[in-house]
Design a binder for these strands. Structure first.
Lengths: 341, 341
DNA sequence: TTTAGCACTCAAAACAACTGAGTGCTAAAA
DNA sequence: TTTTAGCACTCAGTTGTTTTGAGTGCTAAA
């Protein structure tokens, strides 16, 4: 059985109608949406074929048809016409997103809010990854006799800090030693190089000061690791409740989102500019009823992070994909401007 | 009509039974829970009285009785026996809470997680307020030709940072000038004193450097303001779904929690050691079906922040109040140790 | 190949009956 | 005066039945 043009038109009409209404689409209703006239019986035959081919399915015998994952996939890859961006929307998005202070975290948070609102989905965003980042600055700030804050600033603009206790009193010498070791061993080094191995040799070389100083460098290494791990921000999770087809799964889904780890993987694996995962195409079973659209952003031409949305499979792909591309482009542009020049 | 001892016993039994089962309590069932024997008819008469007095109500004519806000209040203030803490629980709580790095934010986050889990409610925690905090350190870190990170560390251990753009190139002189102004105008000053007024006089006094420097000090003032605002952390919101009596309100409730502002007020206004707000006692209508238990913690004997839970009115007050007191006491103790000495 | 027609399916809505926990009231018992 | 047994009544919730209507597949004629 081959995919005639008429079948394509019918499939597209079913997908679009279902996306619009959320109701299974029957042969009679479909008539009004097609640009050629045949009887409902003909449509029925074609729809039965499309069902055989795996593009459509029926919730139950006496209901209309609903697209399968395969159906959505065919539609998105071959049939869909991307919608044009609405000028006014672009402006308001740009305004909201750029309103922040320039802090990457705040920017991504804003961007997440915007797409969550715009798409009525849960939004996920990742901060610029520190893959190539180096240590720009390390500081020690005594807070009390035996505690100090250790602060790390990376070349990617990430700032991390941690309180740290020592078993010995912190003196002016301690501080000076810290800075001198930092200058020789940390500043300018890639974050990736600061691991347990590097730390061990360092501590060994400290000699008599090892006991005094090591807690601080351990803390610093922790911070470096922390800065490397690309943080995931979540926005608009509550939007998931607006989609009744997700009912019952929402809580489970939110629980899944809460532990950012799988999300980070989800985002990391995409290679295309925009990644779309429909229902069971997702490797995580918690997402089997959801679709994910992920759009990456580049800083200085280099893939650095991504924005994504998670919602029901019944997403308005034609509209949302361009929007996601727009926002991620915007984020990339702003971050490139902030961090370079 | 006066509150006889028998009425008190009956009220307590109704409240406790309802808290345990979630079902309206009928006269017959109540018989088994009372330490004196009368007939169900007698109970019915007494319950009718209690209803007249405003302590109980009926969902509908042929259902049992449910405590009103007033009923809970009377129970908590006059009838309840606080439960003893379970030794093993205390230990495991202490272990979890103290496992962090000493960073206040991490500590409160952990504490929030613990109480959310323990109480099966949504947990709110506030970071130690910076009311009396002073500027400990201010740093400027050039990130590019025209952008710099401004970093503020307060005496309360709060660290805030912000990216900041200038219209003029940032030179070594810029940096030096920044530090010299900081040393004279910011370091050691209370955060509260850094307002627009202070800023205006400062900028005026900068003379020819005003244009070059002011963005950084504006950013610094922003950070100070930010550090003053006591951040609210949320944990375990999803727990709210486990309470069917909140059904339908959960989304609205979560939305309310998400904007931290009213929460901050909620917490700030309490004066007692432990604050309990039942249902309509809450000033926010979104909380009309919920109860809130807030327990404050002290650092160095000074009221500094609080932990709270939000759940249905049907909370096990006798058990949860001591737990909240325990955890907030623990948090206060740990923070006192970390920040002083 | 298309279409009209028809018998069939099945979820959802509407309706009806039943159940049972619980009530309030009354009149007798303590 | 207080307590209790007894009884009629209420009403949410469950269960079962019927009706409705959108939609299907198949067949036979166009």
């Amino acid at each position: 059985m081959d995919m005639t043009e008429r079948k394509q038109k019918i499939l597209a009409a079913v997908v679009e109608s279902y996306i619009r209404t959320g109701e299974p689409v029957g042969s009679k209703n479909l008539l009004t949406e097609l640009d050629f006239s045949v009887s409902s019986a003909t449509i029925r035959n074609e729809m039965a074929d499309l069902a055989d081919m795996g593009y459509l399915e029926q919730p139950h015998t006496s209901a209309g048809r609903v697209p399968t994952t395969l159906g959505y996939r065919y539609y998105i890859d071959k049939l869909m016409n991307k919608m044009e961006l609405n000028e006014a929307d672009c402006k308001s998005i740009t305004k909201t997103v750029s309103s922040g202070s320039g802090d990457p975290e705040q920017l991504l948070e804003k961007a997440g809010e915007v797409i969550a609102k715009l798409t009525n989905c849960a939004a996920i965003t990742t901060l610029p990854s520190g893959d190539r980042a180096t240590v720009r600055r390390a500081e020690i700030v005594p807070v009390s006799n035996r505690t100090a804050m250790i602060v790390l600033l990376t070349s990617a603009g990430t700032l991390k800090s941690k309180a740290c206790r020592s078993d010995m009193p912190i003196t002016q010498q301690t501080v000076e030693r810290f800075y001198s070791v930092c200058a020789s061993h940390f500043i300018g080094k890639p974050l990736e190089d600061i691991g347990t191995v590097m730390l061990q040799t360092l501590v060994a070389s400290l000699g008599e000061f090892a006991l005094e100083m090591s807690p601080f460098f351990v803390a610093l290494a922790d911070l470096a690791e922390d800065a490397l791990r690309s943080d995931v921000l979540l926005e608009g999770q509550a939007n998931l409740f607006n989609h009744r087809e997700l009912d019952g799964n929402v809580i489970e889904l939110m629980e899944f989102l809460r532990k950012g780890d799988p999300i980070a993987k989800l985002i990391a694996r995409g290679t295309d500019d925009v990644d779309i995962r429909i229902g069971t195409e997702n490797e995580y079973k918690q997402l089997a009823n959801s679709s994910v659209i992920i759009s990456h952003y580049d800083i200085n031409g280099e893939r650095s992070g991504a924005l994504g949305i998670i919602g029901p499979t019944r997403l308005n792909y034609a509209k949302l994909i361009p929007y996601m591309q727009f926002v991620s482009g915007l984020v990339g542009k702003i971050l490139t401007e902030t961090l370079e020049e």
